[in-house]
Design a protein around this nucleic acid. Structure first.
Lengths: 210, 210, 210, 210
DNA sequence: TATGAATGAGGGTTCATTCAT
DNA sequence: GATGAATGAACCCTCATTCAT
């Protein structure tokens, strides 16, 4: 297989970016199978042949799009250290970001899941994506447990998977299936359920939140 | 257009059933797009053309398979009235059945979700499936609230969606993505999180369950 | 090939007739290629398999339908000997019958023409059909020529083909292509053109017709 | 949907033309239904898929072929203004061209008629084709009537349809059904019948023609 | 005789990918 | 780098015909 090198000229870089952007839009709108290479090219304003100057196959383009999405989700969901030290507020902030991150990319992530069933490489990318969120959640819980603020009997990893899944799943139901709800109410409820589930001991300052 | 009628003879019924079974297996193993009509026929041991004696298209077969799966999930997840009257135990039983039902069919349900994006009829089937589970969960919660056993401030429907989604999502992660866990531990944890999240007041008899 | 014998029982005869009738209707409405054997069977109210009890193929059915149509056209277009002896009136009567016969069956005759291109047997049937009309017209003209009523320089056969074609063609344009005209006016004009073309010498009695 | 654009390069133009030419030949030889896209491709010397670079379907190709044929028939049948002013000679010239135009394309025109039964667009093309010839004939007759050379009682349009149909129909019988005749004799007779039918008054110069 | 299930050759169309210019 | 024509494997679906019951 011929390795497609990174484009060297500014023009090449622009073309490549246009293809990635067009691909992302197309995949998001129509799904992996339904998107033809020609669609992407038309959207990017280049000819069919040009596509193969930059990508060896449609799958390779998808992989790149997926990687970009995963990257964005990582950065978009970091609860800054500047956030309040109040545990409940931190959980709430995390849930809001989590919900937004999954909402913004739910279609592409689902495509990634679907495609991951067939392609080894994509499977790894998906697992990596999940792992970051899981670890983040598990670490947060462990910290709370160490501080005596959460039930120490809970397995941190499994709990994080379950409660994180609750948020992730709700994002899908909310956006893809059109379950009516407003973000504020959803985040409030998700946070309340999450906090109670882990047995978050209300510090004196957050008593009124509950 | 020729309408495909139900088979009139025993032989026809057998063939039709063989096709549905073969289709279900094939879809489950390879996904909707990857399955060719020929694959289904080969698996069912009939010729190419026979398929079209019973189904007008691959999509129609899938619709039938999906409907069957949905039907099974309905019946498989009913917590019998004979089950213990203890709320915690009922939640546990429901979670176990819920987890098993989704586990057994997670791939097909995901295919249904995927296909529902494109087909109106399938979308309705999917929404119907969800609705049954949501309503069941919401009704259960409402009953607990009325008995003074659960936090009355929680919106029953939204809460059911979120906590139900937690279980459903875990089924996927567990089976499709291979997250290691044993059923017993998973059900235990899901139940504990669920019970605490809704503020289930431990009746005196179930104190030791927690 | 198995020769399908004529049906021996009354029931068999009825089924066979139903198939021929259904085939004729179907061919007339939809054309040879567009008609499926199943359509004919459904229309006749018999199962697919029964068709082959009476006809070895779809083409054989068509042949039979075509033969029936040709037969009808023969008998329908005979100007009875009782008709007026006046040549002009006889031409008019012939044209009226000719026009009606072709009108009633134009679709099927065109199908026959089309099918005749591919099938030897049908070609003969078509030629036979044409020949009867041509000969009839040529004989009529020859008689008029012998009586000194028509231009003796005209080749009877070729003239009959041309003028007969004029009528036949008009039937198509009129019915198939929807050229507006009423039968009376059309027959009048066809007859006038025909009579003049052959130089019909107006006998004293028919002077006012011209 | 991808719109098939006109080919942009000389090579593309050549390929497209080759397909149209091949299609025309194939349709003419075997009829619309009998022609497979592969036949056309083989004849044009291109691969299967190339066909769909230029035409979205077999039907679209036929439409183009038919339009080309109709166009040719229009131009081929114009009696130049340079032709003799003698009415009889003009009719003769028109008939010769008419006969030739229909002879050269009779199979394709019949296919057009056949296909027009099913397709709206083709029906319009066919009606347009007919209308041009009808109008031309009607105008010619009207002019003769105004000059006092033809029977003023004849309806120009209907007469043109009938006499034009005579020529058209003869072209079919002659070529498709193999009625033996030589062109000269046929044109002579058609012209004689036509002229007499409309009551063409022999101007002094053409007396001997009759 | 009638039924209807089963067959499989046949044909149209799509689209990812290659390659000459 | 860019273009767009060319390729052909892959797949869905139709329907005339056969055959066991």
């Amino acid at each position: 297989m011929i390795v497609k090198s990174d484009p060297l000229t500014a023009r090449g870089r622009r073309t490549r970016e246009a293809l990635v952007r067009a691909g992302r839009e197309a995949f998001d709108e129509h799904g992996y199978e339904a998107v033809r290479v020609d669609d992407v090219c038309a959207r990017a304003g280049v000819s069919h042949g040009t596509f193969y100057t930059y990508f060896t196959s449609k799958e390779v383009l998808f992989r790149e799009v997926a990687a970009a999405v995963v990257g964005e989700m990582f950065t978009a969901s970091v609860v800054g250290p500047a956030a309040s030290g109040d545990p409940y507020a931190r959980i709430e902030a995390a849930n809001r970001l989590y919900l937004r991150a999954w909402s913004a990319n739910s279609r592409l992530v689902r495509m990634l899941e679907q495609a991951a069933a067939a392609e080894e490489g994509l499977r790894e990318l998906l697992l990596e994506l999940r792992e970051v969120f899981v670890r983040r959640g598990a670490d947060g819980l462990r910290r709370l447990q160490e501080q005596g603020l959460a039930d120490p009997a809970l397995d941190p990893r499994l709990t994080a998977i379950m409660l994180g899944g609750m948020v992730e799943h709700f994002a899908r139901v909310w956006l893809d299936l059109g379950e009516p709800a407003d973000e504020r109410a959803a985040v409030d409820l998700l946070t309340r359920l999450w906090a109670r589930a882990i047995g978050l001991t209300p510090a004196s300052t957050s008593a009124e939140d509950m």
